[in-house]
Design a binder for these strands. Structure first.
Length: 490
RNA sequence: GGCCCGUUGGUCAAGCGGUUAAGACACCUCCCUUUCACGGAGGUAACGGGGGUUCGAUUCCCCCACGGGUCACCA
């Protein structure tokens, strides 16, 4: 049998969990769960300057919210810790010493300015920028001289030229490179390992079997393979997922504002995590059936790397909205109410504390709109009219109210409503009242319902009228009817 | 520019030598409904180009074009 699968998601804590990262984590997680393996979360914080405090916690929260859990990580522990680069410095040091000792790596005293100038000159001369190798063969005297100057050093890996570097990618097949003799930096002058060094050491020591990540890392892979070779370690299996693109077809950047790209934004808008997980799974991966609504468990059972798409996927917010709407319709009303009430509270439409009656009222309000919402935040524009003093009359509505016989209908209905006491004011009673108006005035169909709807809501469309009128409340309904009947509206 | 990867409708995508080239989102039409939405029934719309290989290419190979990724002491 195959050795047990161990995979990891290793974000750098420099910002929020975004769609691309979540999707990478998801694919990795799905693979682990499907194969009964371990999913590890590691924090790659080697860039001290860019680390954002609290970012790691945000990753944890976002991932858990989506339904992704892990077996090892700094918050849950595990036998291969620590799970954060900055806490693994002793480990790195030891491995760097080894490379240095075997003369597979060397100190480089070039300053960033010198290197930049070198690159500029090469670029100006039409050459591909590449490290000159100036410090490659420094004598002990030269080194001592640099040290005496107070120069700091980096460590570079010796890279041969023309060495074949081939690997089999689980999603793209064979990929091959040729080493270019460009000695790359593996330890920064600060003493911190660079990403490439840290991942290789960590992945190896944590016994990672499959290295999964976005396509943008393909070009890092040959360098990492060189490192595996330098250490004499067996390479893991690689899998690079396609990129998620914005509407312009470009890789999502953190500054991109054309799209909502942070998981927290969707959570705040009241999306359902199951919908996002479902949608993300289908972005770059497809099952072998025509269905597309899947629970996490369904996806775990079906997932495989060979059905991951090779070309980039444009993130379609409209389809996500549709999918979330689909999950909304299937969800328990109670769950949707719990999502919508805070939205209304945040908009200042509902008080922080709801009494029993108000709670019941809110439940009906949400129930009436449950299948219209793409996300919980939609409840606000959808139901705003219930909270206003005056309905906002649309152009079409104005035309409806201007029709002949409308005041008579509205007055008749107003009398009906007035005759009810508060206890008798129910959706059923309202239905009966409208019937009575029909009998009295002879108005029917559109000519009956539409004026009432417009007078009360200002709109020519909306959910069930009886429920709507009940939600409005007797007093407000009466007031609006009278105003519309007397032509005061609009 | 070098290296690497990719290219099926507007979007997500199925297809893995022979198909009327699926399905979904979006859009349009119709039905249902007092209205909107939901739901139902339809519709518009795609294999980047050129060479091969083959009886036969969307599918395999090559070239080109286009798109993207990456070329840091960022990950």
């Amino acid at each position: 049998m195959d050795q047990p699968v161990r995979v990891r998601y290793a974000p750098s804590p420099t910002g929020h969990l975004h769609i691309g990262g979540a999707r990478t984590a998801l694919f990795t997680y799905l693979f682990a769960r499907q194969r009964g393996g371990q999913f590890i979360l590691r924090i790659e914080d080697t860039d001290l300057g860019r680390n954002v405090s609290g970012a790691a916690e945000e990753f944890y929260n976002g991932l858990r919210w989506l339904g992704i859990d892990w077996d090892e990580g700094e918050d849950v522990g595990g036998p291969y810790g620590p799970y954060r680069c900055t806490e693994r410095m002793d480990i790195y040091r030891e491995h760097i010493e080894r490379l240095l000792g075997e003369d597979k790596a060397y100190y480089c005293y070039c300053t960033e300015e010198e290197l930049e100038r070198e690159r500029e000159e090469q670029t100006a001369a039409g050459q591909t920028p590449k490290y000159s190798g100036r410090c490659r063969h420094l004598t002990p005297e030269q080194r001592a001289a640099y040290e005496a100057e107070g120069r700091s050093h980096t460590v570079r890996l010796r890279v041969g030229e023309g060495e074949k570097i081939e690997f089999r990618d689980e999603v793209r097949g064979e990929i091959s490179f040729e080493s270019d003799g460009n000695d790359f930096v593996i330890v920064k002058s600060s003493g911190m390992p660079t990403y490439n060094l840290a991942v290789v050491i960590d992945d190896h020591l944590m016994k990672i079997t499959h290295v999964t990540r976005g396509e943008e890392h393909i070009s890092n892979t040959p360098r990492q393979i060189l490192l595996y070779r330098a250490f004499g370690w067996e390479e893991p299996i690689f899998a690079h997922f396609n990129l998620i693109l914005n509407e312009a077809g470009k890789k999502l950047s953190k500054r991109d504002e054309s799209i909502l790209q942070f998981i927290s934004q969707y959570r705040d808008l009241g999306y359902l995590p199951e919908a996002i997980l479902n949608f993300l799974a289908l972005l770059g991966w497809s099952p072998d059936t025509e269905e597309e609504i899947f629970s996490k468990q369904d996806i775990i059972e079906r997932f495989s790397f060979d059905r991951v798409n090779k070309s980039g996927s444009i993130f379609d917010q409209k389809k996500l909205a549709w999918m979330n709407n689909h999950y909304f319709k299937k969800a328990d009303l109670g769950e949707i109410v719990a999502l919508c009430v805070p939205q209304l509270q945040r908009a200042g439409l509902l008080p922080e504390q709801l009494d029993e009656a108000r709670q019941q009222w809110a439940k009906t309000l949400v129930a009436l709109n449950q299948d219209k919402m793409n996300c919980a935040a939609d409840i606000v524009p959808l139901t705003e009219l219930f909270f206003r003093d005056e309905p906002e009359l649309e152009g079409e509505g104005r035309a409806v109210l201007a029709e002949e016989g409308v005041p008579k209908v509205l007055e008749a209905f107003a009398r009906q409503v007035e005759a009810m006491d508060d206890a008798a004011y129910t959706a059923d009673a309202i239905k009966g009242a409208i019937k009575a108006v029909q009998a009295e005035t002879g108005a029917k169909g559109k000519g009956l319902f539409m004026p009432i709807r417009v007078a009360l809501t200002g709109q020519t469309h909306g959910p069930d009228l009886n429920e709507t009128i009940w939600l409005l409340g007797r007093v407000k309904a009466l007031k609006r009817l009278r105003e519309a009947a007397s032509g005061k509206l609009g």
